[in-house]
Design a protein around this nucleic acid. Structure first.
Length: 463
RNA sequence: GCUCCCAUCGUCUAGCGGUUAGGACACGGCCCUCUCAAGGCCGCGACACGGGUUCGAUUCCCGUUGGGAGCGCCA
């Protein structure tokens, strides 16, 4: 039987890094095994679910290239199904009506916590006939002795004493079902073979296993993925900065790099660090997912991104950088020029944002001068040299890297100065900073007109 | 408090009884060099602790410690 797995986000927020990783591992498992990957929208929390968040999550999946199979499944459209299953448990004595009020329960919980006890439902309504005139929630009648055991693909056998569990509510007093119940009903009816999710669900699993058994259904395989932490070893959250995948898009990361990096958190294939999408699919193995949590490391992500960027064509690099240039009011009108310009900075940016930062000066007529650089290199001496360079560049007919190099070499020979003393003043004049690709290259890309204009402007600068 | 999960360089990880404990990011140095990158070379740096099991434990078992998660009429 081909595996069937699902990713089941609730539309109460954007797709975040942890969710993306869970989605990725489900997707990789399905694609690797030739199985099916479906998306289920868990929108039973009417208070917090929105269509906007749902669309955002879908857009996030699409951006990452995590395509799902078949139609979306909405829990909100399956209410009848849950009701039938609640009735089924009621009928066979595996569930009962509970008229305890939320206030009473809250008080019991507070008392238990104060007494340093594990808060559990005390079973008040378990053995008494419920008052039909009062609103009632439905509770699952869980076994009070014995052990519940299940198998986890990446952790082996996990077991809980049933005494640790209590009678959980499966339907609220308004009739709507609760999470642990809908998950089970959905996973069964959608014929899921493997439940791949974050390990924060391990504690829910025994309750769910009990529900599978009470309902008379086979229990699927589980695989609980280790969590992703922030640098402080706490569950990744807004406090740690970017968590929504779109924030990473906005920072100029490549979707394939995100996938590559996320896949390597908790999983490895020997010493290989860089994977294409296809390689990920080819090598992925749930059994090799290890169980320790991982800390999200932005530096490593940037490096992975640089490796993927290095394999892109210059056309792809230009198109990827374009929106980030436009965001700062700069437009690319000449793509051949842009290819040369951005191409000269390829190794200097690990993200599209960094690439835009580095190549910005090519597209900005009025260069932003860095004060410290001007102070240091465009002083009186620097300007004399700059003027000298300008005088020799101006009459040059072929403004190529080679012919420009000739001029600088001659100047070095004549003046006895070091190349750096010539290169830095012109670099600052051209780019506004002391950092750029080789000056011959920058000069040749800018072209004579642009270059001379920039030099003239630099010459007028006060220091 | 109780239950469950976890534990190899700062970080991500390889390892599945015998290895000089390997790789990657980051960091430091050198080379290259007009600056900065990229690239190349070198270096720093880890089996949390204590008991077992075994001829032999990073590896298997049990504790301890440390970290995390769960304990809702949220998902």
């Amino acid at each position: 039987m081909k595996p069937r797995v699902r990713f089941a986000p609730s539309p109460t927020g954007h797709l975040h890094i942890g969710g993306a990783r869970t989605a990725l591992f489900n997707w990789l498992f399905a694609r690797h095994t030739g199985g099916t990957f479906v998306l289920r929208i868990e929108d039973t929390d009417v208070e917090r679910s929105t269509k906007e968040f749902e669309q955002s999550i879908l857009d996030g999946m699409t951006w990452l290239g995590l395509d799902w199979d078949g139609e979306l499944v909405y829990q909100s459209q399956r209410l009848e199904l849950y009701k039938q299953h609640v009735q089924k448990l009621l009928d066979c004595g595996h569930a009962y009506r509970c008229t305890c009020t939320p206030e009473e329960l809250e008080a019991k919980r507070a008392a238990a916590t104060a007494a340093k006890q594990k808060p559990k439902y005390d079973g008040t309504c378990r053995n008494r006939p419920a008052d039909p005139s009062k609103p009632a929630a439905i509770r699952f009648k869980a076994p009070q002795e014995g052990t519940t055991t299940f198998h986890d693909l990446c952790r082996g056998t996990i077991s809980f004493e049933n005494t640790e569990l209590d009678d959980l509510i499966i339907a609220r007093s308004d009739g709507t079902p609760t999470y642990n119940f809908t998950v089970v009903v959905d996973d069964v009816t959608m014929q899921m073979t493997h439940i791949i999710r974050g390990d924060d669900h391990i504690n829910n699993t025994p309750r769910q296993v009990l529900l599978y058994q009470a309902l008379g259904y086979p229990v699927p395989e589980f695989a609980h993925l280790p969590m992703i932490y922030g640098p402080d070893k706490k569950k990744l959250s807004k406090r740690h900065g970017a968590t929504s995948v779109f924030e990473f898009k906005d920072m100029g990361f490549l979707p394939d790099a995100m996938l590559n990096y996320l896949a390597r958190l908790g999983w490895a294939h020997g010493d290989q660090e860089i994977f294409t999408r296809d390689e990920l699919i080819q090598h992925f193995d749930l059994y090799k997912v290890h169980s320790a949590p991982a800390i999200f490391d932005m530096e490593k992500l940037r490096w992975v991104n640089s490796q993927h960027l290095a394999k892109k064509s210059i056309e792809e690099i230009v198109e990827g950088t374009r929106p980030f240039l436009e965001a700062r009011g700069l437009t690319i009108t000449d793509t051949a020029y842009a290819a040369k310009a951005i191409g000269s900075e390829r190794e200097r940016g690990r993200t599209f944002v960094e690439l835009a930062d580095a190549s910005e000066f090519y597209f900005r007529d009025d260069v932003n001068f860095d004060d410290a650089s001007v102070q240091k290199w465009l002083n009186a001496d620097g300007k004399v040299l700059l003027q000298k360079i300008r005088d020799r560049l101006a009459p040059l007919e072929s403004f190529t890297e080679a012919s420009i190099a000739e001029i600088f070499k001659a100047l070095v020979a004549e003046t006895g100065l070091k190349m750096v003393n010539l290169a830095q003043p012109i670099r600052v004049a051209l780019t506004g900073t002391t950092v750029s690709p080789g000056v011959y290259l920058v000069l040749s890309i800018l072209g004579k007109d642009r270059a001379l204009k920039r030099i003239d402007r630099a010459l007028t600068l006060a220091t």
